[in-house]
Design a protein around this nucleic acid. Structure first.
Lengths: 167, 167
DNA sequence: ATAATACGTCAGCTTTGTTGACATTCCAAG
DNA sequence: CTTGGAATGTCAACAAAGCTGACGTATTAT
């Protein structure tokens, strides 16, 4: 039970097409796992992944505006509005007219919203934690490095902006 | 090379909720980048991500059956059939009745199919390569370790099965 | 002979994205 | 104060890609 391929021969072996393909497939299958648990929770209710994302980022940046959320999620306002309307109607999200700029709507989770967020992120964090623990701290560092290098320019900015908030 | 583990205080810092949240968000934004380039290519044609996935796995395992593909992609046959029909009609995928079991249809890419596959995977590989190069070989190892630990059981099996093919 | 498997297909539904058009509210510049 | 543009909300129509359920047809297995 041995080395399972230490790439020690060629220093650039990790850049071969084969290695890249493996990375691509790993990304595909892993993303499945990444979303599987929240998806299961949401399946029963009338919600989907889009609702999860909205709830996540509102929880993360309470008081964020619709436009902000739009840019982070990278969808159209019509698409987001549908999701947001459902969440507001169901009492998970609260809508507050801006004090300084009354055109803006600031978004907050209600208690029920925070409850759902917690259920979803607990499930997702559990999987992430298990994966992190199995891989170890150095692997985690590498994981994050590769992911950050893989982001699109615009998304990378958003990610960095988020990092500054609580990071 | 073992040195990682036992910094008494912070040894488990990578398992805090904050660290896990960062990982979750990195995964979200990175997946955006991961699919962005193929999406752009496919946008013009009448194809989408589903066609890309089908083409990818047929290229990767030529002669695979419909059932096989179904299990790898984790979708219903109706959903896959819609995609496959379009690809066959457009002459990108070839359909061959099984020699041993005539119920099975073995799937192959035509030359046009291989062309598209190459265009798509070149784009995706380029981004992956850039990310790999920026992060370095050790980061890549960690990246893969975390991803593999994040997969669902069933998907993990499929991923491992694929690995053995060209491993 | 019968049951199970592999595949295709029809019909209908859901989620989540898209455009385009249009109204409202409001800030800010002239 | 008027007006242009920004931020938001909403309507309608549509598309991609998933789903369930039902049914048909070869083919293979029992």
């Amino acid at each position: 039970m041995e080395g399972s391929g230490r790439d020690s021969g060629n220093a650039l072996l990790f850049l071969t097409d084969e290695q890249l393909r493996k990375g691509i497939e790993a990304m595909f299958f892993a993303y499945r796992g990444f979303t599987a648990d929240p998806d299961r929770i949401l399946a029963g209710m009338a919600y989907g992944r889009a609702h999860h994302r909205a709830v996540h980022f509102i929880h993360r940046s309470p008081g964020t505006t619709v436009n902000n959320l739009l840019a982070i999620l990278g969808v159209t306002k019509q698409s987001l509005n549908r999701v947001l309307r459902a969440l507001v109607e169901d009492g998970l999200v609260r809508n507050e007219v801006g004090r300084r700029d009354k055109r803006e709507r600031h978004l907050y989770l209600t208690e029920a919203g925070e409850d759902l967020e917690r259920r979803l992120s607990d499930a997702q964090r559990d999987r992430m934690r298990t994966a992190y623990r199995a891989a170890g701290p150095e692997a985690v560092t590498g994981f994050r490095q590769v992911l950050e290098a893989m982001m699109d320019g615009e998304m990378r900015k958003r990610y960095d902006a988020l990092k500054e908030l609580k990071g």
